[in-house]
């Protein structure tokens, strides 16, 4: 009998009450980890069973999430070896691009809702961007 898995997982945000199915929530969590680089390209993912037990979800749920991540090219599953974060960077960067667009859309929606005009919004974004670049240097 294997011992309890000593998986050190970054926190996953999962909620049974969420409108999305559980496997989609897991997909979103993993996408986030990959996009943010917490899970770097080539990293070996936890096995389906380990992740299921750690997250207290069923095996089929993680299996489904891995399948969809695999067909989206975010992860690569090698038979008998497990799953890895894709090294095909364009897949990942494409995903990152999509994520960026999604967040900008959200920001734009919020700006419209709050009646923030485009000039103020652009200025604010420029300011924030500069701060981040400076922080990185």
């Amino acid at each position: 009998m294997p011992a309890k898995p000593e998986l050190t997982l970054p926190p996953f945000k999962l909620a049974q009450a969420d409108a999305r199915p559980m496997y989609e929530q897991i997909i979103d969590n993993i996408k986030q980890l990959v996009i943010l680089g917490v899970w770097p390209p080539g990293m070996s993912l936890p096995s389906i069973r380990e992740l299921a037990v750690s997250l207290n979800v069923s095996v089929i749920t993680v299996k489904r999430a891995y399948q969809e991540l695999d067909s989206a090219g975010i992860i690569v599953t090698r038979h008998g070896k497990g799953s890895f974060v894709s090294e095909q960077l364009e897949q990942v960067s494409q995903a990152k691009q999509i994520e960026l667009t999604e967040r900008l859309v959200q920001a734009a929606e919020l700006a419209v809702l709050l009646n923030v005009d485009i000039t103020t919004l652009t200025e604010q974004l420029q300011q924030l961007y500069k701060e981040k670049v400076n922080a990185k240097q």
Partner: peptide, 12 residues
Amino acid sequence: LTSQLFQIMLNE
């Protein structure tokens, strides 16, 4: 109980 059952799942 549920947590114990999850532990069983580790063994395929």
